[in-house]
């Protein structure tokens, strides 16, 4: 059975550490990358079932990545879960306009992230953990 691969784009090492752990425990295969340019290269080169994308990252920022991804016909339908800071209504609105699939505001609960990604990838809890 093929594993469901996720890409986590986040520059904060401790958040990456915790997120990877939680997502792996939920049965996903997790790749992580901490800057925007590297993220886009990886997305063009390899296949992922979904992406967790922090808006505030070094290099090419989250918005730029979203635009570039949506401009690529092969990636146009890729589910992208955007992490924004609470209260940044403008960021959220902008990300929505340029094609974010869903949002989670920081600080988020782990269960919420897992839940969202499961719904994107059609991965049921039972199916993978068994």
């Amino acid at each position: 059975m093929s594993e469901t691969r996720l890409l986590v784009v986040e520059d904060e090492a401790n958040i990456v550490e915790a997120l990877s752990y939680v997502l792996q425990r939920a049965g996903f295969l997790v790749e992580t990358v901490s800057d925007g340019d590297a993220a886009l290269q990886l997305l063009k080169r390899e296949r992922f079932a979904a992406v967790v994308l922090d808006i505030m990252i070094p290099g090419m920022n989250g918005f730029d990545i979203l635009r570039a991804v949506r401009a690529d016909p092969r990636l146009a339908d890729l589910p992208i879960l955007v992490l924004t800071a609470r209260g940044q209504a403008k960021d959220r609105q902008m990300a929505e306009e340029i094609g974010a699939s869903a949002f989670i505001t920081k600080p988020f609960s782990n269960a919420e992230v897992v839940e969202r990604l499961r719904s994107f990838t059609g991965k049921s809890q039972q199916g993978e953990e068994g």
Binding site: N14, Y21, V22, A85, G87, K106, P107, F108
Partner: peptide
């Protein structure tokens, strides 16, 4: 500063939940 506050709180919450839930 607000960005940093949210970042650190996010990391703390995620880590604390792992310890609690696992």
């Amino acid at each position: 500063s607000i960005h940093q506050v949210l970042t650190h709180v996010t990391a703390i919450r995620a880590a604390a939940e792992i310890i609690e839930d696992e």
